[in-house]
C-alpha cells in the first residue's frame, strides 16, 4: 500500500491508462499547460504531449460532443469538466448523444467516453458552483455514474471507467482532492463498476451513501458509537450500475437504514434506493427508511446558511436515532 492523495490517485490512473492504451486522451479546460484546474492532470502534458493532453476552449458543449464523436470513431476520450456544474452546458451531448448512441444505432457505436470532474459543494462557492449532479446522469439509461470517495476507489474506479465501453460520468469532489488514503501498489489495480463496499461494519443501523458524503457518514458512525450504536456504512461507489445486492444485504442485517446524499432529496439517488428497499426488503424493515440531503434550496453563499443547507453528521445521527426509535 502507498499513501497518496485522491488527486494523485486520479493522476496515476490517467497516466497508467494512457500508457496502456494509445487511444486514451484527455481533453478539457486547463488540463494541459496549467496542469488542471485542480492539478489532477499534473505532468501529463510533459509525458504524453499535446496530442493526448489537450487544452480546450471554454466550450463545454463543443468539446463534450467532440469526445462523443471521437468515441464513435474508435478513440477512448477522457473529457474533463472543470466542475459538473459547468457540464450542464454539455448535457445534450452526454444524454442525447452519448447515452443513446449505442441503442439508436442498434449496437453499432459503443461509447467508451469518460466525462469527469468534481460534483457537489466545496466551501462558499454559492448556487452555481455547488450542485450535486449525479441524479441528472444516473436518470438516463445508457449512462453510468461513478462517485469515488477515497483515493483507492478513485484510482481503481477511474481505470475501470476508462476501460468500460459505455459513457461514464465520473464524479469527483473538490474537497476530496487533498484527502489522503492507502492505495494498493498493484500496477493494474482496477475496481469493477457496480460493486459497493462496506466501509464500516455495524449491526444496529445502515447508513448508505455515495461520493464524498461517505466521510460524513463515517463521522456520524463515530458519534453514534460514542452512544453505543454500531452503524454500518455502505458506500455505493457507483450509482449506476447500482449494487442492489449490497444494499439489501446491509438492510437485512440491520433492519434500519438511512440514505445520505449531498444533492437534493426530490427524485434523488436516495429516492431510488429507498424505493428498492421497500420493494425488495419490506419485510426486513423495522422502521421507515429516512433520507438526509441538502436543504431544498439553491446553495447560499453565507457561511452559516451554507452550513445549514448541507447535510452533516449531526443530521445523520438524528436520522439514525429516529429509525432506531431512540
Amino acid at each position: 500500500m502507498a499513501s497518496m492523495t485522491y488527486r494523485a490517485a486520479l493522476n496515476e490512473a490517467l497516466r497508467e491508462e494512457m500508457e496502456r492504451d494509445p487511444d486514451v486522451f484527455l481533453m478539457g479546460e486547463e488540463v494541459a499547460e496549467y496542469d488542471g484546474a485542480y492539478k489532477v492532470s499534473k505532468g501529463l502534458l510533459d509525458e504524453f504531449g499535446e496530442r493526448r493532453v489537450v487544452d480546450s476552449p471554454i466550450s463545454e458543449l463543443g468539446f463534450g460532443g467532440l469526445g462523443v464523436g471521437a468515441a464513435m470513431a474508435g478513440l477512448r476520450p477522457v473529457i474533463e469538466f472543470m466542475t459538473f456544474n459547468f457540464a450542464f452546458l454539455a448535457i445534450d451531448q452526454v444524454i442525447n448523444a452519448a447515452a443513446k448512441m449505442y441503442y439508436m444505432s442498434n449496437g453499432q457505436f459503443p461509447m467508451p467516453v469518460v466525462f469527469r470532474g468534481p460534483t457537489g459543494a466545496a466551501l462558499q462557492l454559492s448556487a452555481q458552483h455547488s450542485q450535486a449532479c449525479e441524479t441528472y446522469y444516473a436518470h438516463a439509461p445508457g449512462c453510468k455514474v461513478v462517485t469515488p470517495a477515497t483515493p483507492a476507489d478513485a484510482k481503481g474506479l477511474l481505470k475501470a471507467s476508462i476501460r468500460d465501453d459505455d459513457p461514464v460520468a465520473f464524479m469527483e469532489g473538490e474537497l476530496l482532492y487533498n484527502f489522503k488514503g492507502e492505495v494498493p501498489e498493484d500496477d493494474d489495480f482496477v475496481i469493477p463498476l457496480g460493486k459497493a463496499e462496506v466501509k464500516r461494519e455495524g449491526a444496529d443501523v445502515s447508513i448508505i451513501t455515495h461520493g464524498k458524503m461517505l466521510h460524513v457518514a463515517l463521522q456520524a458512525a463515530n458519534k453514534l458509537e460514542e452512544d453505543g450504536v454500531e452503524a454500518e456504512v455502505l458506500d455505493l461507489r457507483t450509482v449506476r450500475p447500482l449494487d442492489v445486492d449490497a444494499i439489501l444485504e446491509t438492510v437485512k442485517k440491520t433492519n434500519r437504514a438511512v440514505y445520505l446524499e449531498e444533492g437534493w432529496s426530490f427524485l434523488g439517488v436516495g429516492a431510488q434506493v429507498v424505493t428498492l428497499i421497500q420493494e425488495e426488503a419490506f419485510d426486513w424493515l423495522d422502521a421507515p427508511v429516512l433520507r438526509v440531503t441538502q436543504a431544498d434550496v439553491p446553495m447560499p453563499y453565507a457561511k452559516n446558511l451554507e452550513q445549514l443547507a448541507k447535510p452533516n453528521a449531526d443530521r445523520v445521527v438524528d436520522a439514525c436515532n429516529k429509525v432506531l426509535y431512540r
Binding site: G107, P112, D165, L193, K195, A196, L242, V244
Partner: peptide, 8 residues
C-alpha cells in the same frame, strides 16, 4: 455496451 458483472 458493457453489462457489468456487478450491480444493476
Amino acid at each position: 455496451a458493457e453489462v457489468n458483472e456487478h450491480g444493476r
